[in-house]
Nucleic acid binder design. Structure first.
Lengths: 225, 225
DNA sequence: TTTAAAATATGATATTTGTCATGTAATTAG
DNA sequence: CTAATTACATGACAAATATCATATTTTAAA
């Protein structure tokens, strides 16, 4: 397994604020893991004693609602860290993480990080900053969820995936999700999600072959009432 | 103005992790402020260079949605800190804070706190912990908003206020909100909020005299489908 | 490859929620 | 104290969304 200090992933997350020495120590104790599509990385209620660093692939962070439906709270891609909250809290995790495609990850035990968290202010500030940002995003999502229609939310998630995670060479969204996944991101019934995507297709806003979706008319999506 | 070190408020927030010396320095530079009911403490888009410490009263943190409606994201009472995010980010605040009744607050400039944030790991960890907790709460709210009916959400906010902020000697919720506030917490139209509260009243789940609301049948609220 | 299972699609219908209209009660300004 | 404004209430209706039923297509397992 490659060393953390040479891993480009660290450019994307808080680990970039660790010194060379710290990174080497972290590297020595990290565990590489492969997850297959659909596999559970951790589940709501588990105690996760460390952080997962995503080297490749995408996963969803979701939470089971009392009505039995999953709600996706966040998508995490290369460079993201899972389980930050476990660093500062003894509580069990409130979210489940499930791989959306094949993933490569590193697991870094909490004990290793804690040392740096108490001694390297730059690193701590960075973790703090990331968490503050997550919080801002979460507030934003809350407002969207509360105030916008399902159609609008669907349009926005499509644009979000397009903008933040990019497209493949043919212009298709590089993150592939099932209609059920879309439903549980947008917070609606699967049938409704299907219906809305069909409608977008009819209106020429998107095109789709199976699960692969391409945005054809970004502006109309953006300005749709 | 009293000194921070003798202020009981510090027991409730991150400031408790500051040393006696640090608290004295903070105390020396803080500014006491009084806000009247309805007054704006800060507004979305402003740069707030510090944190507000709530000594008395209640305020709402809200965000304006694109549809022109406000969405309340959090209620903050005695012991809460506003503007934590400003400590770690240069960005403008994403939320507005408005007093729900007369409030007493202390403002502590960012410059003072920053010193402690970089030198006192215990304090930093505490801020981190608080932010992690906010994040957890926010995720929770997101799921509720996405998956539960307006009626259910209303029942839950009533129970939340009851459990977390308490009642007065007559059993009425100690936080007094307008129906419009309830609507913008629950994320619905004002008329819908009014209608649901009326319905709860008819069903004997709550009683209300004007804005004062008392929970009469907690269990039915809790188990309501 | 064949077949069973899962995902997608769509109609019909019920339920929830929003909007507009209008009236009454409660607050607040003068 | 009174007038005027704002908050609350409720009906009627429209729009959005969920649910149930049932094909059809796609995917995965044997």
């Amino acid at each position: 397994m490659s060393k953390c200090e040479s891993c480009i992933i660290k450019e994307f997350n808080s680990l970039k604020s660790l010194t060379r020495e710290e990174l080497m120590r972290v590297s020595a104790c990290k565990t590489g893991k492969i997850y297959r599509k659909g596999q559970v990385i951790f589940e709501e209620g588990e105690t996760i004693n460390g952080v997962y660093c995503v080297k490749d692939g995408v996963c969803k962070l979701s939470k089971l609602s009392e009505n039995g439906k999953d709600q996706v709270v966040k998508l995490v891609v290369k460079g993201g860290l899972l389980g930050k909250r476990s660093l500062v809290s003894e509580q069990k995790t409130n979210l489940s993480a499930i791989a959306l495609n094949d993933m490569e990850m590193c697991f870094i035990p909490k004990s290793e990080i804690m040392n740096d968290l108490s001694k390297n202010p730059k690193f701590t500030m960075d973790v703090l900053r990331e968490m503050a940002n997550d919080l801002k995003d979460s507030d934003e999502s809350l407002v969207n969820m509360a105030q916008k229609s399902v159609k609008r939310r669907m349009a926005e998630i499509l644009m979000y995936i397009h903008d933040d995670f990019g497209t493949d060479e043919d212009g298709y969204l590089s993150i592939i999700l099932s209609r059920e996944d879309y439903a549980s991101i947008v917070g609606t019934a699967t049938e409704s999600a299907i219906r809305i995507l069909s409608q977008f297709k009819k209106e020429g806003l998107i095109s789709a072959t199976g699960k692969r979706i391409k945005i054809e008319d970004y502006n109309s999506l953006k300005w749709m009432e």
